[in-house]
Design a binder for these strands. Structure first.
Lengths: 143, 143
DNA sequence: AGTTTTCTGAAAGTCATTTTCATTATCTTG
DNA sequence: CAAGATAATGAAAATGACTTTCAGAAAACT
C-alpha cells in the first residue's frame, strides 16, 4: 500500500475529511527531497498555493507522522523536520554541523544490537533516533 | 581533574567570575540523579535558595555544557535536559514514552560501528545521539 | 577601598509551535 | 441534489521554552 493510500485510509478510519489542501501538501511532501521543516514546506507550497496557511501545513505534517507516513526528526537546530517514511528501508542520519547537510545511512548491525539492548533491559523498543554529528567531506575540504 | 576543578579552570581562563550561585548550582547538579531540565533544577534549587532565578540556572547549565562537564540532551518532550559528564564512560539512553523514565546503556560495539560509518562517508564525527524509545519493564507490567 | 567588569534576577522579548474562532468545505443523510 | 452535521482552514492570538535586556549587586583587579 503506498503512502497516499495509507493516508487516505487513516483519514477515512478517523472520520476526518479529505481536503484539497491535504492532498496538495501530501503530494509536495512526498515528491521532494526530504527533511522539510514546517517553515520550509510552507514557503515552498506558498509559491503555487498562496492560500495555504502555516497552521494547516503544520497540522498536516503532524497528521502524516500520526498515520505513519512521515517521521518527525529533530537535529538540534530548534525546528522539527519531517521525512517521508519508506516501509522497506530504515535509515539514520549524519548531520553536518557546519553546512547543515544531512546524509542518510543504513546499518543493520546497529538495528540488531538495539534489539539486543531492548531485551537486556526488558524494554519494548518502539522507535529510536540515532544521529551522528560532525563535519561532512565537503566542509572538511573547504577548510 | 574532577568536574568542579574543570569548571573553575574554565571560569578562570575565560575571565568569568566565580559566584555563589554558580557553586550552588554546580553542586546540586553534580550530586543528583541526572537528566534535569532547567525548569526541574530551578524548582529544586528554589526550595533551599529562593533567590536563584530561572535565567541564572539556565545560563549556568549552558555554561556547564560549554566547558564540557555536562551534555545537553533532548528527548523530544520539548525541553532540553542536562546530564553531568563522566570522562571515563560514555552511554546512551532508553527513554520510556509512558513514564518518562530514562535508563542508560553502554554499547561499545555501536561506538565502533559509528566510527566505521564516519569513515564510509568521509565524515568527521564529533558527537552523536542515540536514543531508544519505548515501554520500560515497569510500565509493561502495569498494563 | 576604589574601579572595573561580570553576574544576577525580574521582566520583556524571541521564536517555533499550538490553539482559538469565525468562516468555509466536505461528507452524510434525507 | 439539498440540508444539516461536522471537520478543516487561515489569521491571529496564545503558549511555552528559551534568551536577552537592564539596573542594581557582587567579584576581581589595582
Amino acid at each position: 500500500m503506498d503512502r497516499v493510500a495509507i493516508f487516505n485510509d487513516y483519514v477515512r478510519k478517523k472520520g476526518l475529511k479529505n481536503t484539497s489542501q491535504r492532498m496538495i501538501i501530501l503530494e509536495t511532501f512526498l515528491n521532494s527531497k526530504s527533511h522539510y521543516s514546517t517553515e520550509e514546506l510552507y514557503l515552498k507550497l506558498r509559491k503555487k498555493n498562496p492560500k495555504i496557511g502555516y497552521a494547516t501545513v503544520h497540522r498536516t505534517l503532524k497528521l502524516f507522522a500520526e498515520c505513519g507516513i512521515a517521521v518527525e526528526l529533530n537535529f538540534g537546530d530548534g525546528q522539527a523536520r519531517f521525512e517521508p517514511v519508506n516501509d522497506e528501508e530504515h535509515h539514520d542520519h549524519l548531520v553536518c554541523t557546519r553546512c547543515g547537510d544531512i546524509i542518510e545511512f543504513e546499518e543493520p548491525r546497529i538495528e540488531e544490537i538495539q534489539e539486543e539492548i531492548g531485551k537486556r533491559y526488558d524494554f519494548k523498543i518502539e522507535s529510536h533516533r540515532h544521529e551522528l554529528y560532525g563535519i561532512c567531506a565537503k566542509c572538511s575540504l573547504k577548510k
